[in-house]
Design a protein around this nucleic acid. Structure first.
Length: 993
RNA sequence: GCUCAGAUGGUGGAACUGGUAGACACGCAGGACUUAAAAUCCUGUUCCCGUAAACGGAGUGCGGGUUCGAUUCCCGCUCUGAGUACCA
């Protein structure tokens, strides 16, 4: 039979499901290998052709590893909590759980069609109670932990309490809030429970704190930093403003250094690591305290100094003013009555600016003088104190010691406001701009004068420490992550409130189930949707004792989208465990993900949070590895490739603008791409022009005389470029009949063709419905089958490169599979394989591909092995090879790429159904590739001229002698004696003439 | 602005440690089969000169360099894409 991909693929997909072919065991004597894909958010749109790219690559890898004798864990699941389902619920009233379920069903159907070797018995869904129970459990562990800097790890909060009880707050070196109390053991014990809890909250790894958040009014929720782009929400593009709110946060900053260090130990793409490094943003410098000049109106102020962070503490003698953020908490207190108007006007201006276009306009210098002064801690010099919006409240201390001679922003500011600029290095050139050099010797710097950068920095830090005015300090750009969303469709936080303070519910009460509510909107009083749940409150012995009928109220915000995805790879190890998030045994066996494939858009979100939770789980002894994803590959984005048709109006643009609706109803005329381009480049001119260049003859020539009266209005040409559905365009040729059906208003349209065809234009754009460039994998599977789709997606180019999707060329892959099928069949499509001994040439073809696939898969170069398979099949077809000894091994090597056809042929070859997945990858034998002759390329002065076949047994001298005497070579040399002959054995001969 | 990645025929791409640039595939052109079309098969296909072949010349974004030899290494530049953006 001819290659019947539909029957074959359906049959084997069913077989794999029925026989649990890809079920992985948690214990075998085989070595383990864990291949993970970033699990999808099941959106309503289903999969487009770009989604499976990474899944296909990981599936090929997983199948290959099985053939290589590994016990492979290759699971799949759904990140099923999230905003889109909830937005949809708000619009339609449908429960997000229902739409999510539907979407998952669609995803599953689409994934099954592609023939992935997932172990579905381990499927996880983050929105299921059996899963989010453990997300809540991890939250509780975080709540019960603090970060001990001395031990450099998270430890139990009970240890902290014990310390407080015996020694008070002395000797604690923690990552914690800034405004912690100092107290003795006695004082601690004298605290009320409420006071103790309030203090402990400042240490917990997840904590509640009034913090500035990204508030998105349109979505009714706060967003994480990585969910905000240029002041707008990443999802939906709604404006985001800064707002102070009581919020759950995760103390990820405690792990900043470890997150940074870990990057050096993992095999990830360098750009991705770089993005994380930038996000963490470590800078080494010093903090310096500048005393306030209290000889003035500031006498009564409680604050004594302003602290700054600087990476160039060596330039402290060049400080000529100080700038603080307009939002700085001391601004009001520091402003003198005379400056009050200026300052208030400036603050009002910056507020408006940050709302409108915060990202534009970084060039304009602006600021206002407070009227107050600080003193340089080293020489007591009086320094003006300004506010300026180039100082960010959220970075460092929100204050900058300005050194105009060394920093360009400070320089521009000083020039603009006529402030002094003091050079502090002898070779500094500050005529036109700041000079941040570290070379040269210090000047104008008292005790530092004459020192170089290294010695100067050490000296100034020593001095600052000595007088208590500063110290060396490391600063991180990364902030603690906000961990609450005022939304419904997420994990409930397992916390209730008593006397305004949060307490964990009892572990035995997990999971805290997401309650039903009537509407998925905030309440009238602005509380999150969960406030709508009736009778949803925490009742325990205490509430009953206190005769609180209604119990304690639960936390009403839910967890953010990244909560469930920050640990899911552990759940796959033991997905159905109801006692633990995964058994110690399973975790000990699988340890960490060996290969993780996904998009780089998760660089600073998911991948950072996951590393953070992983480190925490390791600290509390639940998991063994410091890093969760040993190797990571970013698959490139699949961009859209749009097609265009060109509608031509034979009238002026002004007329069209005036009367477009009316004109648009007229009979449409479309011109092929060539004509559109020539019209746009004015190679073709309107009707009135000379014969050679006028559009008139083209029009009459193709559409007849009547076309003139039908289309021509005046002597103008106007081209309108319109998107056309890529699915009715084949190799840029428009299917005109399909086009007329696609848009009824074009049913009567006329077309000006080139070579009898309508050629469309094309461009690379985002893949989106509105651009009609979405290609659905279902359609391609229907036409060519899953094996073809799998191989074509790989054939498209290197996995990590972004590329536009273009279905042109898929035929070639389909033809290859058919040709492969034909190797096993005679002219009448009867299965026909011989047991004859293979020839040398056949063995060579086979072993070339065995070696090639091995090398390619190991370096994730899947596109090149597809080409090599084509070469192998072309060669074997040429050799008319139908020998079992060759074909059986070939089937195994192709199985990871095209599993269905290979399963079918495997069984036709007489093997047991389902066993190919665990067959042994054929052993490469280099002996079959050995040649005894090589066709040497002969170049003269580096230019290839001819080939001469020589035995490989010849030595360099023999080769040179033969070449020098060869007739062809003598002809090229034209009697001249070569200056030099370079012989590289088995490679090339180069003659220098 | 900074950081990173990339630039090879009409198109997607190959060339792995410096050694025959353009593998493989699409498209296109010509041919076979067919009443015809589709499908299939065969041949050609980097560009320029030339009727064609032999042959000759140019050629991996641009300009230099190292080398017997450079798509590959080095220096400078242009363009494209991604990330980031007053980070003190």
């Amino acid at each position: 039979m001819d290659y019947q991909f539909k029957d074959i693929e359906k049959k084997w997909q069913q077989f794999w499901a029925d026989n649990h072919t890809f079920k992985a065991e948690n214990k075998t004597d085989k070595p383990k290998y864990y291949v993970l894909d970033m699990f999808p958010y099941p959106s309503g749109a289903g999969l487009h052709v770009g989604h499976p790219l990474g899944y296909i690559a990981s599936d090929i890898f997983a199948r290959y590893k099985r053939l290589k004798g590994f016990n492979v864990l290759h699971p799949m699941g759904y990140d099923s909590f999230g905003l889109p389902a909830e937005q949809y619920a708000i619009q339609t009233g449908q429960h997000p759980a229902v739409t999510t379920e539907d979407n998952i069903a669609t995803y599953r159907r689409q994934l099954d069609q592609i023939g992935f070797s997932f172990d579905w018995s381990r499927e996880v869904r983050t929105s299921e109670a059996g899963y989010y129970k453990w997300t809540q459990w991890i939250f509780m562990q975080l709540f019960n932990s603090w970060y001990n800097k001395d031990a450099d790890k998270a430890v139990s909060i009970t240890d902290l309490v014990a310390h407080f009880e015996s020694k008070g707050s002395a000797g604690i070196n923690a990552v914690c809030d800034e405004e912690i109390l100092s107290f003795t053991a006695e004082e601690w014990k004298a605290f009320t429970e409420q006071e103790q809890q309030a203090e402990l909250l400042k240490y917990r790894l997840t904590y509640l704190r009034e913090s500035t958040v990204n508030w998105c009014a349109a979505l009714g929720t706060v967003l994480a930093n990585d969910e905000v782009k240029d002041g707008f929400s990443e999802r939906g593009g709604y404006p985001v403003e800064q707002k102070k709110m009581m919020q759950w946060s995760m103390r990820i900053t405690a792990y900043a250094q470890r997150l940074l260090d870990g990057l050096d130990t993992i095999d990830w793409p360098e750009p991705l690591k770089e993005m994380q490094r930038n996000w963490i943003g470590k800078s080494v410098g010093a903090s310096v305290k500048f005393p306030l000049d209290k000889s003035t109106h500031l006498a009564g102020l409680s604050a004594d100094y302003i602290e700054v962070f600087t990476t160039r503490v060596d330039t402290v003698f060049g400080v000529t003013f100080m700038a603080i953020a307009p939002e700085h908490e001391l601004v009001a207190a520091l402003t003198t009555p005379e400056q009050k108007n200026d300052i208030e006007a400036y603050i009002a201006k910056t507020k408006k600016k940050s709302e409108l276009d915060r990202m534009a306009d970084t060039k304009t210098v602006s600021g206002a003088f407070t009227g107050s002064y600080v003193l340089n801690p080293l020489n007591g010099e009086k320094i003006q104190l300004w506010i300026a919006d180039y100082v960010l409240a959220g970075y460092g201390t929100g204050a900058v010691m300005a050194v105009p001679s060394g920093d360009q922003r400070d320089y521009l500011f000083a020039k603009h406001f006529d402030l002094p600029i003091v050079p502090i290095i002898d070779i500094q050139n500050i005529e036109t701009e700041a000079d941040p050099t570290k070379e040269g010797k210090y000047i104008n710097s008292e005790f530092m004068n004459g020192l170089d950068y290294k010695a100067g920095t050490a000296a100034v830090i020593a001095k600052l420490e000595e007088i208590g005015a500063g110290k060396a300090k490391v600063n991180f750009r990364m902030r603690d992550a906000i961990f609450g969303r005022q939304r419904y469709w997420g994990e409930p936080v397992p916390v209730y409130f008593k006397d305004g303070l949060p307490y964990l519910i009892d572990e035995s009460e997990l999971p805290l189930i997401l309650p039903e509510i009537d509407k998925y909107l905030p309440t009238e009083t602005g509380e999150p949707p969960l406030a709508r749940a009736t009778g949803w409150s925490y009742k325990n012995q205490e509430s009953r004792d206190k005769k609180q009928e209604e119990g304690f109220s639960y936390e009403l915000s839910t967890m953010p989208g990244w909560a469930g995805s920050s640990w899911y790879w552990y759940r796959y190890m033991d997905a159905n465990n109801s006692e633990e998030f995964a058994s110690q045994e399973a975790i000990e066996y699988w340890k960490a993900v060996d290969l993780y494939i996904g998009g780089s858009e998760h660089a600073t979100g998911h991948l950072l949070y996951s590393r953070f939770w992983n480190k925490f789980l390791k600290d509390i002894g639940k998991t063994p590895e410091e890093e969760p994803f040993k190797k990571l590959i970013n698959q490139g984005m699949i961009q859209g490739r749009s097609n265009f048709v060109y509608r031509l109006f034979l009238q002026s643009g002004e007329e069209l603008e005036r009367n477009f609706d009316e004109i648009n109803k007229g009979k449409p005329l479309f011109v092929s791409a060539k004509y559109a381009n020539e019209i746009l480049s004015t190679k073709i001119l309107p009707i009135g022009y000379t014969k050679e260049t006028s559009f008139k003859d083209i029009l009459i020539g193709q559409l007849g005389k009547d076309a003139l009266s039908e289309h021509v209005v005046d002597n103008s040409l106007f081209v309108q470029k319109l998107h056309v559905d890529v699915n009715i365009v084949n190799n840029e040729v428009l299917n005109i009949e399909a086009f007329k059906k696609w848009r009824p208003e074009y049913a009567e349209a006329d077309f000006v063709l080139e070579d009898g065809k309508y050629i469309c234009g094309w461009e690379v754009e985002k893949m989106s419905k509105s651009k009609y460039n979405v290609v659905n994998p279902d359609d391609l599977i229907e036409r060519y089958g899953a094996d073809t789709l799998r191989m074509y997606e790989m054939f498209l180019g290197p996995l990590e490169q972004s590329k536009p999707w273009n279905t042109n060329g898929i035929e070639g892959v389909f033809k290859f599979l058919r040709k492969f099928w034909r190797l096993f069949h005679d002219a009448d499509w009867n299965f026909n394989v011989s047991n004859a001994e293979p020839s040398k040439a056949e063995l060579k073809s086979l072993h070339k591909i065995i070696q090639k696939v091995e090398q390619d898969v190991e370096r994730f170069s899947f596109n090149t092995s597809v080409s090599s398979f084509m070469i192998a099949v072309n060669e074997l077809t040429e050799l008319k090879c139908n020998k079992r000894a060759i074909l059986q091994d070939l089937v195994i090597t192709l199985e990871p790429y095209a599993p269905h056809i290979c399963e079918e042929l495997w069984v036709l070859l007489g093997n047991e159904a389902g066993t190919i997945s665990y067959a042994t990858y054929p052993k490469f034998n280099p002996a079959y590739l050995v040649e005894d002759e090589f066709s040497y390329p002969i170049s003269i002065n580096g230019k290839m001229k001819t080939n001469i076949a020589l035995s490989l047994s010849l030595g360099n001298d023999e080769i040179e002698a033969t070449i020098r005497a060869h007739a062809d070579v003598l002809k090229y040399l034209d009697g001249k004696e070569p200056k030099k002959v370079i012989v590289v054995k088995g490679r090339i001969v180069n003659i220098v003439a």
